[in-house]
C-alpha cells in the first residue's frame, strides 16, 4: 500500500470517528430535549414537586440547585484562587509542591460518590450539620476545589513571564504584579473556568445525595430570614437539587407522571448547563475586551 492510499484511509477513519462522536452527542442531547422541552411550562418551573399526584413541578429543586451552586462557589472560589496563585506565582519547584500538585490531580479524579460519602461522614455526621445546604455546599467544595484550582493555575501559567518582568521593572512588588497585572490578564480564562465548573456543580448528583439530602421541604418564599428553617435562604434545611430529583424519581418515584417530570427536569438541567457554557464564552470574551480596551 502506498503512502497516498494510507493517508486517504487514515483521513477517512478519522472523519468516521469524529462523526461517530458527534452523532452520539447530538442524539443524546436531541433525545433529552425532544422528550423534555414539551413538558416545560411556567407552572412546571415554579411549583413544588408532588409525591403522589400528577402535575408536580421542580420549583424548589431549581432554586436549591442555584442556591447550592452559589454557596459552593462562594466557598471554593477564594480558596482555589489563593491556591492557584500560590502554586503558580509563589511556590518553589520542589518535592513538597510536586506532592501538592499530584494530590490535586488525584483529588480531581475522585469519583463524586466517594466525595458524597466522605461529606456524609465528615460534615453530616461528624460536624452534626445534618442533611443540609451547608453540608452539600461543603461536599461540592471538596468536589470542585481540585478542578478549579488547576484551571486557575493554568490560566495564570498562560500569562507570559514578560508581563511579570515588566511589572517588576516598573517597581511593582510581587504581590502587586500578581494582583494588578497577572490576575487581570488571566481573568477572562479564570471566569471561563469558574463558569464551566459551575456547570459541573449544577449537574452533580452523587456528591449531594448523602449531604444535601433527598427531600425538598416546602419553602416560604416570603420569608427571607436565613435563620428560619422554612426560609429559602436557610443553610441548615435539607435541599434536594434538580440532579438529585431526577435520580430520585427515576429510582423510586411513585407519582403517576414520574416519566414526564423526569424528562422535563432533565431538559431543564441540560439547558442550564448549556447556558453556563455559552455564558462562559461570552463573559470571557466580553471581559477580555473590557479589560484590554475601552
Amino acid at each position: 500500500m502506498n503512502a497516498k492510499r494510507t493517508d486517504k484511509m487514515a483521513t477517512g477513519i478519522l472523519y468516521g470517528v469524529a462523526a461517530f462522536v458527534v452523532i452520539i452527542l447530538v442524539a443524546l442531547l436531541g433525545y433529552i430535549l425532544i422528550q423534555g422541552v414539551p413538558k416545560i411550562s411556567w407552572h412546571f418551573l415554579t411549583s413544588p414537586a408532588l409525591a403522589f399526584e400528577a402535575g408536580g413541578g421542580i420549583g424548589i429543586q431549581l432554586f436549591n440547585s442555584f442556591y447550592l451552586l452559589f454557596l459552593a462557589l462562594l466557598i471554593s472560589l477564594p480558596i482555589s484562587l489563593g491556591a492557584g496563585i500560590y502554586l503558580n506565582e509563589y511556590a518553589p519547584q520542589n518535592t513538597v509542591t510536586g506532592l501538592i500538585r499530584t494530590t490535586i490531580e488525584i483529588l480531581s479524579s475522585l469519583p463524586s460518590v466517594v466525595v458524597g460519602l466522605f461529606g456524609y461522614l465528615f460534615f453530616v455526621v461528624q460536624f452534626k450539620l445534618g442533611f443540609s445546604i451547608l453540608s452539600g455546599a461543603f461536599a461540592l467544595t471538596v468536589f470542585n476545589l481540585p478542578i478549579l484550582t488547576r484551571s486557575i493555575e493554568e490560566a495564570l501559567a498562560n500569562i507570559s513571564d514578560n508581563q511579570r518582568e515588566a511589572g517588576y521593572a516598573l517597581g511593582l512588588s510581587r504581590w502587586e504584579t500578581v494582583t494588578k497585572i497577572v490576575v487581570p490578564a488571566a481573568l477572562p480564562s479564570i471566569i471561563t473556568g469558574v463558569v464551566l465548573s459551575a456547570g459541573r456543580i449544577f449537574g452533580e448528583a452523587a456528591a449531594l445525595i448523602y449531604t444535601a439530602g433527598q427531600s425538598a421541604p416546602a419553602l416560604d418564599f416570603t420569608n427571607w430570614n436565613p435563620f428560619d428553617i422554612s426560609s429559602p435562604l436557610s443553610p441548615l434545611r435539607p435541599a434536594e437539587t434538580l440532579a438529585v430529583h431526577i435520580w430520585k424519581i427515576n429510582s423510586e418515584g411513585i407519582m403517576p407522571d414520574a416519566k414526564a417530570v423526569s424528562a422535563g427536569a432533565s431538559a431543564v438541567l441540560i439547558i442550564a448547563v448549556l447556558l453556563f457554557n455559552f455564558l462562559a464564552r461570552w463573559l470571557g470574551k466580553r471581559l477580555y475586551k473590557h479589560l484590554t480596551a475601552e
Binding site: 514578560n162 508581563q163 515588566a166 490578564a185 479589560l291 484590554t292 480596551a293 475601552e294
Partner: peptide, 8 residues
Amino acid sequence: QPNPFPFS
C-alpha cells in the same frame, strides 16, 4: 520582547 500589558 515588547511587553506592554494587555490594557489600553
